[in-house]
Design a protein around this nucleic acid. Structure first.
Lengths: 223, 223
DNA sequence: CGCGTCTTTGAGAAACATCAACAGCGGTGG
DNA sequence: CCACCGCTGTTGATGTTTCTCAAAGACGCG
């Protein structure tokens, strides 16, 4: 958190085990449930998730909510075209981010490699959002939930015996608002997948994928 | 194309009729119905629409289609994070685009102003897509159609007496695939707006907005 | 003028939302 | 340690929106 190091030479001498002096990053920590930024707030930075999970949301005047994305480690959040953030961003878990000044994206001066990396992140974001358009516009409830689980499996799945397991740090209504449906439909769909022995649920927030191929079939709407 | 001008004074003298020496562009023309690029095709360029309208689409294995966006003059299309385009792109009307090498976005070397402009276009694209998420995930059919008409009015509306008029260069099924609904529902919704005297339709593809405030109410779901 | 394509309208079906009640779980205080 | 409380999640019954299927009408093009 914004520690300035008066003399890197000395620090490197004092910490010889750190083979290569890593670039100085502004790290920031967000406790679970706390906000990183709000919609409409003046945007000064973009953030790279290192640990934890962020939730990006947008709400309509009447309270309807859309979860734009979940920010997992490696994701960059906070892109903005004018001077304001366009979403709320809060932490589902205790989360650490690298703080990049918006100028790091806007201009390569200072750090060309970082500029390129952030630009690539933005372009990747565009293509991920295009995928999500198909999800929201054209897929059935069952396909959406199955696709969602497959994405998480790919992203954060851990081996558990012959199966894959991962946590759902978000609530059912977060999932619903991400997939454009209701919590009840998310539940029913998960229950159905559980009864088909395609997945198992452990204490509500842990998923075990039992039959990946069957889940892929569900995601593609094949029967 | 990165033309260096050895002496602007002289060029202005030699070409007195061209008030301000415009930057040299690669222009490309696409006839209505023709493709600019296909999904999966190797991506070498990004394109800035000058005239006409492009359609960006993505299709699922079983044929379900999502229109990702319509590219109007000023829009930039063809952003890609790896080496392939992620959508199909074809022209609804005879269309002219400026061809920018992907390196113009990826590196500021050669033309820093262009680099910045393309980057801003990418960032603007992200925020526009976030809006569309709310549309696809949370809005009713009536709200989607009304929002769509309002966006076009803003973008390409022409005064017609005290009203505003514009063309719909796309088919009803293009609109449906953009808004995540069926052509029939698009039709019924337009008919309803027409019967409420909120809009008028002239020969199917021309819209006149009669009551903008009422259309805004429709778009926000107020009654 | 005829033909094909796109649009519109209607009737019925399906998917999903809504409303309501209950269950599970964790936390707190007695 | 247990009982209670509140929140989240689950399940069921019903309602509504939208989709699907079908047919007729409009428009453009040759």
């Amino acid at each position: 958190m914004y520690v300035t190091r008066p003399n890197e030479q000395i620090e490197n001498f004092l910490l010889p085990l750190r083979a290569r002096p890593v670039q100085q990053h502004h790290l920031h920590h967000i406790c679970a449930g706390k906000h990183l930024f709000h919609e409409g707030q003046t945007a000064r930075n973009i953030y790279e998730v290192v640990k934890g999970v962020l939730r990006l949301t947008r709400v309509m005047a009447d309270g309807r909510r859309q979860v734009i994305a979940f920010g997992y480690p490696g994701d960059v959040v906070g892109f903005h075209s004018d001077d304001e953030y366009h979403t709320d961003c809060d932490a589902l878990l205790s989360t650490t981010v690298i703080v990049h000044s918006r100028s790091a994206l806007e201009s390569p001066a200072g750090n060309s490699a970082l500029h390129t990396k952030l630009l690539q992140a933005a372009l990747h974001e565009i293509s991920a959002m295009q995928d999500h358009f198909l999800m929201l516009g054209r897929k059935s409830a069952a396909e959406r939930v199955a696709s969602f689980l497959l994405t998480l499996q790919e992203r954060v799945g851990m081996p558990l015996g012959q199966f894959t397991q991962f946590d759902l740090p978000m609530s059912r209504s977060d999932i619903a608002d991400f997939l454009g449906m209701t919590t009840e439909t998310v539940c029913r769909t998960l229950t159905r997948l559980r009864k088909l022995n395609i997945i198992a649920l452990d204490r509500v927030h842990t998923v075990v994928i039992l039959k990946p191929e069957a889940l892929i079939k569900e995601a593609e709407g094949r029967d």
